[in-house]
Write a protein that binds this DNA or RNA. Structure first.
Length: 351
DNA sequence: AACTCGGGGAT
DNA sequence: ATCCCAGAGTT
């Protein structure tokens, strides 16, 4: 592993010259670093920027986050995905308030004990916000290290990840662990790109990178193939009455847990409305939509319904246009029906 | 170890 | 279409 011993100085030099200007780098308090790291889990920098700004604008401190209404929290997270990150974020904020008296803990083990914080995120917060010399091994770091050292290990395997974490711990510059960890990630995000398209001419490790020298960047890192998605057909019901649309809340666990949605069922028809006690006055096609999750693909066909009266099953709500836009958190899966819903809802005085 | 959990941008 | 992203929690 002698490549990792040579790496720190040229990499840190490169990082100081090429680091992107990012909002969580300008004032890296533990709260800022933590929030950014949670938002950045499996999510690109570009997708996070606006969410990060809006979130801190409304919830500038850990205490604010601990106290905010869940419905408002989910609205702030709407569209970012992996919604349990938001719930765990608040759970952890309450841990910080109650267990640590409102002061963000500074050791790797304490940070790791927070909800939603795993070994990567604990390492990132500890090193960046507190200067603790621990690695932060994400997908970028695995790719960079496997290429530079010519590691053939399957990066989807925990033992490969643990081996690389240990190698980094033994070779990282202990004086500036935060910059080193961020430099590894920055290199992976901007130069050592995936899918065999790295910009090796720009890489500070090009002189000693095993994958570059032996022309194996297209093959490394080794990664086991992932399982195929399953397709689900769903019928979506856009039910209107007096300028409002019917919404229901999804179950507390599982896919899109706790978010609001237009009622939908697997391959249902108008008969479904009777089961809900809804009398359709007129029916239209509401268009179609496709949404691709990581492991599921929804093919949706919508029915637009004008209801004869205001009756709905327990727990469902009538949302006017403003509530649809500003109150209820809907997943992006239903975005293709938003245009029709907005057309057929009205602003009302209620909220 | 395998599975679940979003959404989007790049190729 | 496929890959993969500053991964973590559950089973």
């Amino acid at each position: 592993m002698k490549e990792l011993e040579i790496l720190p100085i040229p990499l840190i030099q490169w990082y100081h010259e090429n680091a992107r200007v990012l909002p969580w780098r300008s004032d890296p308090t533990p709260y800022h670093v933590w929030l950014s790291e949670i938002m950045l889990q499996q999510t690109r920098v570009a997708a996070v920027l606006d969410y990060y700004r809006r979130f801190l604008e409304e919830l500038p401190t850990v205490a604010d986050l601990a106290a905010v209404e869940e419905e408002r929290l989910m609205k702030l997270w709407q569209g970012l995905g992996y919604y349990n990150r938001a719930r765990n974020l608040q759970k952890a904020a309450r841990q910080v308030m109650e267990t640590y008296g409102g002061v963000f803990p500074g050791t790797y083990e304490e940070i790791l004990s927070l909800a939603g914080v795993g070994d990567y995120t604990a390492g990132a917060i500890a090193s960046i916000a507190f200067g603790v010399p621990v690695p932060a091994v994400d997908g970028n770091v695995l790719r960079v290290v496997c290429r530079i050292t010519g590691d053939e290990g399957d990066i989807t395997r925990p033992d490969t990840k643990n081996r690389i974490r240990k190698a980094l711990l033994d070779t990282m510059p202990k004086a500036f662990p935060g910059d080193y960890n961020q430099a590894l990630m920055e290199l992976g995000a901007t130069v050592c790109l995936p899918n065999g398209a790295p910009l090796c001419e720009k890489c500070p490790a090009r002189a000693f990178c095993v994958a570059h020298i032996t022309e194996q960047t297209g093959r490394l890192p080794v990664k086991a193939p992932k399982k195929a998605r399953r397709v689900e057909k769903r019928t979506v019901f856009l039910i209107f009455h007096e300028g409002k649309v019917a919404l229901r809340q999804r179950p507390k666990k599982g896919l899109l847990a706790g978010l609001w949605e237009y009622p939908n069922e697997p391959e249902a028809d108008v008969g479904q409305l009777a089961e809900w006690g809804i009398t359709p006055l007129c029916l239209d096609h509401g268009g179609t939509g496709k949404h691709i999750f990581t492991h599921i693909e929804w093919h949706m066909s919508a029915l637009a319904v004008e209801a004869a009266d205001g009756h709905l099953p327990d727990g469902w709500v009538w949302a006017d246009r403003r509530a649809l836009q500003e109150r209820y958190a809907l997943p992006n899966a239903f975005q293709s029906f938003m245009g029709l819903a907005l057309d057929r809802t009205e602003e009302t005085s209620e909220f």
